[in-house]
Design a binder for these strands. Structure first.
Length: 552
RNA sequence: CGGGGCGUAGCGCAGCCCGGCUAGCGCGCUUGGUUCGGGACCAAGAGGUCGCGGGUUCGAAUCCCGCCGCCCCGACCA
């Protein structure tokens, strides 16, 4: 984009859009606008400057923390999103179920103080976003608004010529009941997604699941025993040392959930998925510092297990070993297993033949593992691969979190006061453009789809000294412009033809019209299709009609 | 916030270790001429607080200290 003269970096994550880039952004925004209008959206323009107090209402000054820009000489912030403003408006404008449903949207600059802007325009501190908010009187109505948005988003990305897919996502700290992301596969993406080879499954790695065999339950339930395992630190080493399969081993990791230590048991060498852990526990988590591990468990990482944890461990009444203070949860693959091997909470010792039900108190079994490439999709069809992706759009069912905070309520048919049920939906406009370029380019430059192309036609005047050629080109420019065709006219003098051709390919308008004396002698003008490189020679009288037909 | 790199002409860079003449190179720019259908050539020019501040020194782009900015990796990311 920088090479094509579309944008220019002013500061980290802050870009100027030059005329060419600006035209493309406008095209993308117009497509978004049309599809939002088509589902009954009403366009707003909310202020980017918001009073801090507004954000205090929902506690999101703290939640956003350093990501939100604060104005120094007024108690104002630069809005990173607009749920608060929407709620504030809804509170005074929505009184009855008769006022609902509503879809309010805007296309506006958002400000986020990203700690690390990267990948050019993909993660900026200031960026253009279409954000919309649905207001509904029931959960069923929210589902409808949500589906309308999903439909509109599909139309938008399809019209922008993007190959995209939809994934289920973690609703995370937005506090919603459902969410979905629209992604484009790209190595420069920041999200990691899991895709089934047959296209039948796609999910963010944070929530992805797969079919993997559970650990076995043996009829022969052996008694607990301790084994000496000197210098064995990892699960792989342990499997090697004891000559057993990974599914007999349980890895233990310890996290802080606020101030409560949580021991998580994973089968074999499965990786814990922190996002899943976070949603299971409902609070932010962080790994326990290595130096604290001995104090908490009695052993270093590598010898930790669910039995006999040091932290104020007590004998439970039933005779098993329980702990106080520690919470122990396990991946659901371990549910009901016996004859399991895990750390003894004593350095260089492991316990064998653990029966999780008999020997310890597990507070719950949850899906906590990270999906790995090659596993089977949850629908049983196709093997999974893992890819990087760019998030183009995200749709959320918000529920009543924000309307509760603001007291944004309405009266239903029976005169009962209820909170408005909200949804929130976003699309990054820059990302549409960046992804389009990434998916539509070759070694010579950009290959615009006509939906987003800054201009439809690029006139390359080759023979700047030839009077007739200049005349023809200038008239063509005027005629096309009058005919409603967007034209870029390269009439630069003292620039060699080769230079102009290279520039035309780099900028990538769908059709190049090449005016030069070479073919003009026969009354012909050359049209080159950028995508295919195909050249056609058209009579100069017919060219406007021909191009208009291509545009349709 | 942690780790690494960089900051010298509009752009891209060399010079810095080992301090020393007028701070260079390529592209671009200006002027003149030739060229003119796939990134032309010749000639003559213009263009610099060497990121900022302090220090060492007879002398600092170069060495030392502090700060700022940018890039990359990580943490974080409604």
């Amino acid at each position: 984009m920088i090479r094509a003269g579309m944008i220019r970096l002013l500061s980290a994550g802050i870009f100027s859009f030059l005329p060419l880039g600006n035209r493309v952004m406008k095209k993308a925004a117009d497509i978004v606008r049309e599809e939002m209008d088509a589902i009954g959206g009403q366009e707003f323009h909310f202020p980017a400057l918001n009073p801090v107090e507004l954000w205090e209402e929902t506690g999101r000054v703290k939640a956003f923390g350093d990501t939100m820009f604060h104005i120094k000489n007024r108690p104002l912030v630069l809005a990173p999103t607009h749920e608060e403003v929407v709620c504030w408006l809804a509170k005074s404008h929505i009184a009855s179920y008769r006022d609902l449903p509503q879809i309010w949207y805007q296309i506006q600059t958002k400000f986020r103080n990203e700690p690390r802007p990267r990948s050019g325009v993909l993660r900026g501190r200031q960026f253009l976003m279409k954000d919309s908010y649905s207001l509904d009187s029931s959960w069923e109505a929210l589902d409808r608004s949500y589906e309308l948005h999903a439909k509109a988003y599909r139309n938008i990305f399809r019209r922008c010529g993007l190959k995209f897919f939809e994934v289920g996502a973690s609703s995370g700290a937005m506090g919603g009941t459902g969410s979905q992301e629209f992604m484009v596969e790209s190595d420069s993406g920041e999200d990691i997604v899991v895709l089934a080879e047959d296209g039948g499954y796609a999910a963010n790695l944070e929530v992805a699941t797969s079919i993997v065999p559970r650990a076995a339950h043996y009829v022969d339930n052996k008694p607990l025993a301790e084994v000496h395992t000197p210098n064995v630190k990892t699960i792989d080493e342990l499997a090697e040392f004891l000559k057993v399969e990974h599914n007999l081993l349980a890895k233990s990791v310890v996290y802080w959930a606020h101030d409560t230590p949580v021991l998580i048991l994973m089968m074999g060498n499965d990786e814990l998925n922190e996002a899943k852990l976070m949603s299971v526990l409902g609070v932010a988590v962080r790994p326990v510092e290595p130096e604290k591990l001995v104090e908490l468990t009695g052993a270093d990482s590598g010898s930790i297990g669910p039995i006999g944890l040091k932290a104020r461990s007590v004998q439970s009444g039933s005779g098993g070993t329980g702990t106080q203070g520690f919470k122990i949860i396990a991946d659901r693959l371990l549910e009901g297993v016996n004859n399991l091997i895990s750390g003894a909470n004593k350095n260089d010792y492991h316990l064998t033949n653990i029966d999780l039900q008999r020997d310890c108190r597990i507070d719950g079994y949850y899906d906590l593992r990270t999906v790995q490439a090659g596993e089977t999709a949850p629908n049983g069809k196709g093997s999974l691969r893992i890819a990087r992706a760019i998030e183009l759009g995200h749709i959320f069912k918000l529920g009543t979190k924000y309307s509760d905070a603001f007291g944004a309520r309405f009266l239903d048919e029976k005169g009962k006061e209820l909170p408005i049920i909200m949804g929130s939906y976003g699309i990054g406009i820059e990302r549409i453009v960046a992804c389009h370029i990434e998916q539509n380019h070759d070694e010579n430059g950009i290959v615009w789809d006509k939906a987003l192309a800054p201009y439809f036609v690029h006139i390359v005047l080759v023979s700047v000294k030839n009077k007739k050629a200049v005349e023809v080109a200038e008239r063509l420019y005027a005629d096309l412009t009058n005919a409603g065709v967007e034209v870029l006219f390269d009439d630069r003098k003292d620039i060699s033809p080769g230079f102009k051709f290279k520039d035309a390919d780099l900028l990538g308008m769908p059709h190049q019209v090449i005016v030069g004396e070479k073919y003009l002698a026969d009354g012909k003008i050359e049209i080159k299709e950028r995508k295919t490189g195909k050249r056609t020679f058209v009579d100069s009288k017919d060219i406007v009609r021909k191009l208009r037909r291509l545009l349709a």
